[in-house]
Write a protein that binds this DNA or RNA. Structure first.
Lengths: 215, 215, 215, 215
DNA sequence: TATGAATGAGCCTTCATTCAT
DNA sequence: GATGAATGAAGGCTCATTCAT
């Protein structure tokens, strides 16, 4: 929120800036989704937002600003929805629930996540670090969740493993979106959650072990 | 290989076409890596390839053809290098080795994989299905590897789990490239292979189990 | 007039569209006259019209649109000027006057008529029929003029002859422009009108007859 | 014939030059007919002629040379076929026959005449006068035909009328081609010859006179 | 504040012509 | 003589951005 203000607007009325930028973001997301950032023109963004090209440029400085705003807004939404997780409980069950929650969010915001995922990289060297920071922030939430399990004695993995696990969870969420062409043909989000949870928790050997124990 | 021929060239000499296209691909990959497909001009591609813009267009029809050629070439290289894996052995050890092998390939071809990964989506509706097919082909290799383990009694997981696991492995390879900004700061490829293998094979509970057993 | 609107402009203000297109047409006619449609660049058209290339494309979609606009405008002008003819009188004198009138218009609009005449054929299959329709419309005016004479008993020729005669008159008008290199060397427009009228009205045998009668 | 030699060829063997140029002309005519001079590429001409682009340029110096060759060849053909007319007889009948003959030639060579007619103007200032000269040469044949009638007392029209009449006949021949979209819908070449001859010989008043006399 | 006409740099692509083999 | 790969000037068109109203 504090960040949007970093993108300069000619218009002074902050409420108006907020409102116009939201219109803009909504329009842009659906356009970027359809044709990507580069194939979308500023005119199209303005039209989709419901105002003129002149007005658009009263609220941003360059086309790239729109992308930044879009990415920022999506991160913010995901983060906000994710923030209802209890990061502190420190049980495997809460971790499982966190994953379930995140995957469902990603499923619902599929288009947005996909857009951000595919277009964020075109952000300039000035804006990219900020976006990456936000991404790490979200990965950090999973790390926290995991670390609490370790602290709680529910899990015993090294810090390195914790970090990578957090990344894996984060990427597996995005993966549901960016590999939808393959995954979503045979699999519902429920299936996906169940299967990924199985693999994450039991691992390959875990399956084997279970069987052996059971046998 | 048979595919490149589908992109029409004005020049008849196939050897020359092969040679020029390789020059073109080499140049294009490094440009796409640096600035992405859309920000790269055809003139730059020609210059990087070592010939004139006119010559470039003797070997392709549109700029998009270059991207297709690049993607196809990278897939082909990865596939070729991957083909030395023994898909039939059916032991956990061979699966582990396969992953090790694949991750090292991805590490060495990081730039290429990154490019393909980030730009493939801009391919038109005509070319995209082909690219996706090639991707599934590679995922299929991991599926095969896994399935043989199951057939061999080394692993006991459902077909759904097998498929998703193959996707996970494939994506985790790419992830080493596209999240290098986070992963490669603290982690060598050896570390990455070791850690991912641990997580894949033991799972979260597996660690716990080991500890409990050991304690 | 209604037709120009069929060529899409990005600019909404219809008055402005009208004005800019007129600038465009004026510039284009003089360029097409000098070097033909194909050898004239869109940049040259823009410059001749007094605005930038970007602005040009705010008022048309393709270069061919300019040609269409030019042709349409010329037809419209000729038609408008021709419309002062009295098509109904039905005397040989009025026919003679009509021819006189038309030939003078063509003389004054020589460059325009020449341009249209030489370049209309490059219009695409979409636009050509419209242009031909307009041409037939003008031929139709002469047919009307002739037919009234017939109806009036001033003339007694078959419908086939009427039609062809109308075409002949129309083409002889254009001919004054497109064969100016030959005709206008020795002949003023007054001469041309007189001579063509003689030939049209008396025919070859007519002369003979007159002579014989007179002798 | 002597003219073709004016267009320089690298190849010395004159027989070969003649042969290759004929191939070239044949191919070019059909291409120009289809898409016009400007939209036809030299490569297409070469291909249509049955040899390579390199070879094409062994026999011409510029693309425009091809057009010149084409125009020259067509004029030559028409002139040759026209030369069987008896220009000296000096009867109205022979004039009528001449027209008949010429119109039939134009009908048979419609495409060629159309091409030449529409594209000749793009010839450079160097080549154009030559083409116009050839055209006047042909008009001159009709003038001769007419003048002999006058000398013979079969016709009594001024020299000015004679010249214009010759032009009219010439243009009416071409008109059969370039207005085919209108004329040939309802009219065979026989009809056209008959109707035009009627109009030329009797004139408008002639019809009336005939009727009056006949009445 | 809002508008939208104007701008022009820059992009992709074509094609006449050359020249080494 | 024949070939065809190479060249690069030039053309049509787009679109981010500005600015007067």
């Amino acid at each position: 929120m504090a960040v949007k203000r970093e993108i300069q607007a000619s218009v002074k009325d902050e409420r108006l800036v907020e409102k116009r930028r939201n219109q803009m973001i909504r329009g842009a997301v659906s356009l970027f989704k359809e044709k990507g950032f580069h194939r979308t023109t500023t005119r199209e963004i303005a039209r989709a937002a419901g105002f003129s090209i002149g007005t658009l440029y009263e609220y941003i400085r360059t086309k790239e600003d729109v992308l930044f705003l879009v990415c920022d807004s999506i991160y913010e939404q995901v983060r906000k929805r994710l923030s209802s997780m209890d990061l502190e409980e420190g049980t495997l069950e809460s971790l499982k629930l966190g994953i379930d929650h995140y995957f469902r969010i990603v499923d619902e915001m599929q288009d947005e996540v996909l857009v951000m995922y595919q277009e964020a990289k075109v952000l300039s060297n000035e804006a990219l670090p900020y976006v990456l920071k936000r991404e790490l922030e979200m990965v950090g939430m999973f790390e926290k969740l995991i670390k609490r399990c370790v602290e709680n004695g529910e899990l015993e993995i090294s810090q390195e493993h914790q970090q990578l696990l957090a990344h894996n969870i984060f990427v597996q969420g995005q993966m549901w979106g960016f590999r939808r062409w393959a995954l979503q043909k045979t699999c519902s989000i429920e299936d996906y959650i169940r299967l990924q949870t199985d693999l994450l928790f039991s691992g390959i050997k875990g399956f084997k072990a279970q069987v052996e124990v059971g046998g």
